[in-house]
């Protein structure tokens, strides 16, 4: 439980830049000319490059990350091998390990 929770947390941290890159590359086309440099006083409400339009989303994401950290820490502190659920997890891990080992052998 604890390792899974922590792994998910770590993965979420590691994948965040990739998700951000994917969003940038696939949703918004790459811009070669700088919008800020092209700005002039005559351009009414000209877009300034990279405004923090996704700030609410970022805050939500950070909140989720903090929550994930809390789950990971809680899971780590309550983790006990003797609990019945661990048998299920062991079995799950065992089967995955077997599958992985089998594919590698």
């Amino acid at each position: 439980m604890a390792c899974c929770a922590f792994a998910v947390y770590l993965l979420s941290q590691l994948l965040w830049p990739l998700r951000w890159l994917r969003d940038r590359l696939l949703v918004a086309p790459a811009v070669t000319a700088s919008a800020s440099v092209a700005w002039s006083p005559a351009s009414v409400a000209a877009p300034v490059a990279r405004k923090w339009r996704w700030k609410p989303a970022l805050l939500l994401l950070l909140a989720a990350e903090v929550f994930g950290l809390g789950v990971a820490a809680t899971a780590a502190s309550v983790s006990a091998p003797a609990q019945p659920s661990v048998e299920f997890l062991d079995a799950l891990h065992g089967s995955i390990c077997s599958a992985v080992k089998g594919s590698l052998s």
Partner: peptide
């Protein structure tokens, strides 16, 4: 152009 806009405006700056 950039420096003469009002102090609280940031047109033409990279943010």
């Amino acid at each position: 152009d950039r420096a003469l806009q009002p102090v609280t405006e940031w047109g033409g700056f990279d943010i």
